[in-house]
């Protein structure tokens, strides 16, 4: 019985120390949080190395590649930078143009850096109908042969 009370007393003491100590730590501590932002810097030059100062740039996000996501003008060294929205994984397309010259670059961005894409394919209705047809056909075929065996 006495032993039991000693254990309970020790536990209460440890608990109180545990409750008090953190307050002291917080009073003199520091907190560091960080966020990683993937910033992409573009440098646009002519074939001879001359910077495309003041060139127009257009950034297209992967979820809507026909509508500009960001537009702007390069600095005197032909540079600009932007932070892509990482909730939109895929290929980001960046076009830079000036005085009849231009180019486009494709940058894949994603958690696994894998670019997904494709063309054509089936609509949802087609997929559902095809699946239904397949199931119905399989069941029908099975029923047909099972009836035949009984006969």
């Amino acid at each position: 019985m006495r032993m039991k009370w000693r254990i309970i007393t020790c536990l209460i003491f440890i608990l109180m120390v545990g409750l008090v100590l953190p307050i002291k730590v917080l009073a003199h501590g520091a907190k560091i949080e960080y966020t990683v932002n993937m910033t992409i810097e573009i440098v646009a030059t002519y074939d001879n190395g001359e910077p495309m100062a003041g060139a127009q740039f257009v950034v297209y996000a992967p979820d809507d590649p026909s509508t500009p996501w960001l537009t702007g003008v390069c600095d005197d060294e032909g540079r600009f930078s932007f932070t892509p929205d990482t909730s939109k994984p895929g290929t980001w397309d960046i076009q830079v143009r000036q005085a009849g010259h231009g180019d486009i670059v494709y940058i894949p961005i994603g958690e696994d850096m894998v670019v997904t894409g494709g063309t054509g394919g089936y609509t949802a209705i087609q997929i559902i109908l095809m699946a239904a047809c397949f199931i119905w056909g399989s069941v029908g075929t099975a029923l047909y042969f099972s009836r035949r065996r009984r006969a």
Binding site: Y122, T123, Q126, L129, C133, G137
Partner: peptide
């Protein structure tokens, strides 16, 4: 019907 749907998809 399945064949036709596949053809439409392509």
């Amino acid at each position: 019907i399945s064949i036709m749907l596949v053809s439409c998809g392509g």
